[in-house]
């Protein structure tokens, strides 16, 4: 029972990944192409999830939106993981002023609710993928830095690291060979949780109209577009939201499982 249940997230997430990768190949959708003769169609045989205010297929938007979410999520997590891990490992290993500067910098960024900082950054600049990834990474790297710093702090006291130091092994080599590998587990667990947060935040920004440009297909945008048709065409907002929630639920469960496996550490 337990093992069977715990596999559900893997199945669901694989399905999402498949939709994100293969879906766009099977379904043709161009956000630019409107079909005013078929606007606000109910979900049915012609359009499974109905159509929006410009006659565009909502199902296709959900499929293409999956790709956008995965793309933004993966890019942001990769950028934050690389930046956060590098900074955290170096600060934790070398300590000293570098570590102090890092801690204060993190304190400053944490003074703002993450979404507020992302809103100020994304709202200030032209809407683009790069700006969104940047705005989300601005706070997402912090957790990676904290966790890897903690790991580095504990690893540096281990006997074999001391031994390597005494033997005169270059510091860069010690870092890469002896310290970094220990951060892998927590980083993977964290990446899963951060992925969920980032996907949610991107949808939120796009919902507020300060996320991705109109040429991109995003769940947040589709949900926002549907808000004005709520009284007559509930499906435009409702269905992409269900797709989004389902994804987040499963990542959450997976993240919990991974966290349990790799130890809570400083994950919070």
């Amino acid at each position: 029972m337990k093992t069977w249940l715990s596999r559900i997230p893997y199945v669901v997430l694989t399905f999402y990944a498949a939709v994100a990768v293969i879906g766009p190949l099977l379904i043709d959708y161009n956000p630019v192409r409107t079909d005013l003769g078929h606007r606000l169609l109910k979900p049915g045989a012609t359009a499974w999830f109905g159509t929006d205010g410009l006659g565009r297929d909502v199902f296709a938007q959900v499929v293409y939106g999956a790709r956008t979410s995965v793309l933004i999520g993966v890019s942001t997590v990769v950028v934050s993981a690389v930046v956060g891990t590098s900074i955290g490992t170096v600060a934790g290993y070398f300590r000293g002023w570098l570590d102090t500067v890092l801690s204060r910098g993190i304190d400053i960024l944490l003074a703002f609710p993450a979404i507020l900082l992302a809103i100020v950054i994304a709202g200030s600049f032209q809407r683009s993928v790069v700006v969104v990834v940047g705005a989300l990474s601005a706070t997402a790297w912090i957790s990676f830095a904290r966790v890897t710093r903690g790991t580095a702090l504990s690893v540096r006291e281990r006997a074999w690291v001391d031994a390597a130091r005494v033997l005169g092994v270059r510091r860069r080599f010690i870092l890469v060979r002896h310290v970094l590998p220990f951060t892998a587990g927590p980083v993977v667990a964290l990446a899963t949780l951060e992925f969920a947060l980032v996907v949610l935040a991107e949808a939120g920004l796009s919902f507020l109209g300060i996320g991705l440009p109109n040429s991109a297909v995003s769940w947040g945008q589709t949900i926002a577009n549907g808000k004005q048709y709520l009284a007559t065409a509930w499906w435009i907002s409702a269905l992409p939201g269900i797709a989004l929630s389902l994804l987040i639920v499963n990542i959450g469960i997976l993240g919990d499982q991974l966290t349990a496996r790799f130890g809570r550490g400083q994950l919070r």
Binding site: A196, I223, K227, L230, A231, S245
Partner: peptide, 22 residues
């Protein structure tokens, strides 16, 4: 509770509008 934590707030807000207001 896992589900509640996973709903994007802007979307659950819209769904509440749909149900309770409209």
């Amino acid at each position: 509770t896992i589900a509640l934590q996973s709903f994007p707030t802007f979307w659950s807000g819209i769904m509440l509008i749909l149900i309770f207001a409209l």
